[in-house]
Design a protein around this nucleic acid. Structure first.
Length: 416
DNA sequence: CGTCCACAGGAATGACGGGCGG
DNA sequence: CCGCCCGTCATTCCTGTGGACG
């Protein structure tokens, strides 16, 4: 088949073939649907909380928490957009801004988003954080408005830096004469409260809204509603729907997960030229998502992190038991020599291992071997094939996958 | 029951590139 | 162009520690 024909086939499949999608976008988790099933309570409470702003008084600060995929962001955005519409309708002097702290990344960038929301533009960098905050405060005061700041994933901000920004924000009202600020803090981590300065905590959680995980039947309803819009009639089998819901329910009731599964399963079905999504497609989607996640994570690592992964891989392959820090560092150093790169210190490698653990690429566990010290036993969570695939665009690294470290071949395995 | 291994992991500090105002 | 302030990565130095061994 020549190139032209391949493409003909691909395109024809798209138009004539068994398409399962009506509107694929609806299954993306950043899509904001018309209705949010099983979140009536939260919508009502958040609505009640922000309502006073429409009548000109500041609302309580609100602390929203719940695990990922429980609808916190969707509900907040939903309520805020309705709130905005209402404000326009009755011509109330209100404003709001929504910032995702994890996506923003740093305290500085969060501040810069805040500035933009009061129509102040600040440089990407160069100013001190305090200066940016001052500008925000001034700009806000000029607007003579009641302002709601929604900080999504605040936990990322607090853990990475500290809670000074939150602290400053909670007391900014004291220095504003013509405007007022309320904060909606959204957190994935239920334990965030423990990290917060008690002063911040008490003022931030004047009001608290908890998002419980969805159970399987709730997820099923959510998926069903979305599928009505996203998929062609009859494109979703009963079994596939239930399986998506069940798998996501098992994973802390994560609606995001459920939507991903369904979308990818639909893509799988479509690629096979089938018009109905079956349980088998969902199973395949599950594998595919995990596969992509891992390969992408691996490919985006820094050189040294990749070398650490390779070191663990070689250790485990040669000795068949879980590798310990010291041995990994030996192999790692040798691999560095192979590439003529100066190795990092063991201390640094230790934190790299922790990062890889957090990414789910490794499994590291501190164990004490009594007389023989205290170390970390490290297991690989991924297969050779995945490593090969992820490192394939770098020839030198690809070579190292099949390299046999000298420090391993010599003493032909240790104890255990 | 104390010792002592082989690290863990916190704190302080430095090196470096980007990007600003002046 | 300089000096300054970031944020990020890395090093150095350090104190802490579970439990088998003696």
């Amino acid at each position: 088949m020549d190139n032209q024909n391949i493409l003909d086939e691909v395109f024809n499949k798209l138009f004539n073939g068994a398409s399962v999608f009506k509107d694929r976008e609806v299954l993306r988790h950043d899509y904001l649907p018309e209705r949010l099933p099983h979140r009536e309570e939260q919508i009502r409470r958040l609505g009640e909380a922000v309502a006073p702003v429409l009548k000109g008084s500041r609302c309580s600060n609100i602390f929203v928490y719940g695990k990922t995929g429980t609808g916190k962001t969707a509900v907040t955005k939903y309520v805020l957009s309705r709130f905005e519409a209402k404000a326009k309708e009755i011509n109330a002097p209100v404003g709001f801004c929504y910032v995702n702290c994890r996506l923003a990344g740093t305290e500085y960038r969060v501040l810069s988003s805040l500035c933009q929301s009061v129509r102040l533009f600040v440089p990407f960098t160069g100013l001190s954080a305090g200066e940016v905050f001052d500008r925000f405060r001034k700009g806000l005061d000029e607007l003579k408005t009641i302002f709601i700041v929604a900080l999504d994933e605040v936990d990322a901000l607090v853990k990475a830096r500290s809670d000074i920004l939150l602290y400053e924000l909670t007391r900014v009202n004291e220095t504003l004469s013509r405007s007022k600020v309320s904060i909606i803090g959204i957190s994935n981590d239920l334990r965030l409260k423990e990290f917060l300065d008690p002063r911040v905590l008490s003022s931030l959680s004047e009001e608290e809204i908890v998002f419980r995980p969805y159970d399987a039947s709730e997820l099923r309803n959510i998926l069903f509603e979305r599928a009505q819009v996203a998929l062609r009639e009859g494109a979703l089998s009963e079994g596939a729907l239930s399986l998506c819901a069940a798998l996501a329910a098992a994973e802390h009731g994560d609606a995001r997960r459920a939507l991903d599964l369904l979308r990818v399963a639909g893509e799988v079905a479509e690629r096979k030229g089938v018009s109905v999504i079956t349980e088998e497609h969902v199973r395949e989607a599950e594998k595919l998502i995990e596969h992509n996640r891992v390969v992408e994570a691996l490919a985006n690592l820094t050189l040294h992190s990749k070398l650490v992964v390779l070191s663990v891989f070689h250790m485990v392959k040669a000795n068949g038991y879980r590798a310990v820090t010291g041995e990994i560092y030996e192999v790692y150093s040798e691999l560095c020599n192979e590439l003529a790169v100066t190795p990092l210190t063991q201390r640094r490698v230790s934190t790299l291992v922790n990062e890889l653990d957090a990414l789910g690429l490794l499994n590291a566990q501190v164990v004490s071997m009594g007389r023989y010290g205290r170390t970390k036993k490290i297991r690989l969570e991924i297969t050779r094939t995945l490593i090969k695939e992820a490192f394939s665009n770098d020839v030198r690294l690809g070579r190292l996958v099949d390299y046999e470290p000298k420090c391993l071949s010599k003493d032909a395995g240790g104890r255990d």
